[in-house]
């Protein structure tokens, strides 16, 4: 399989999982949240001031109707964002790598 096709396919699978599957994921507290609730320190949790203005708080995209739609939109936005950020960072890191001159 050509690399471009593989990458496109992987990104498509990730987007499908983040949009189509994520609205049906368990909404129960995760392991740490459960322990925090059971042991009574969950109320110590606060939002950092910069998070008050987080664009997609709690994986619900603002302005998208319905819980499942808002989660799916958040999944799409997040998956594309991390793809571009990581791809871009890797490209910059590679360009700055000193290479031996061709013989």
């Amino acid at each position: 399989m050509r690399l471009g096709i593989f990458i496109g396919l992987a990104l498509a699978v990730a987007i499908a999982l983040a949009t189509l599957a994520s609205p049906f994921a368990s909404s129960s507290p995760d392991g740490l949240n459960r322990v925090a609730m059971d042991q009574g320190f969950d109320e110590a949790g606060t939002l950092h001031p910069v998070q008050e203005d987080a664009p997609v708080p709690g994986y619900a995209f603002p302005g998208v109707g319905g819980d499942r739609g808002a989660t799916a939109a958040a999944g799409l936005a997040g998956t594309v964002t991390v793809f571009l950020l990581a791809f871009g960072a890797a490209a910059v890191l590679r360009r700055r790598t000193p290479r031996a001159a061709p013989a």
Partner: peptide, 13 residues
């Protein structure tokens, strides 16, 4: 380089 992006997308999803 693109695999880094695809892996990040998969981990996030």
């Amino acid at each position: 380089v693109p695999l880094v992006g695809a892996t990040a997308a998969m981990v996030f999803a």
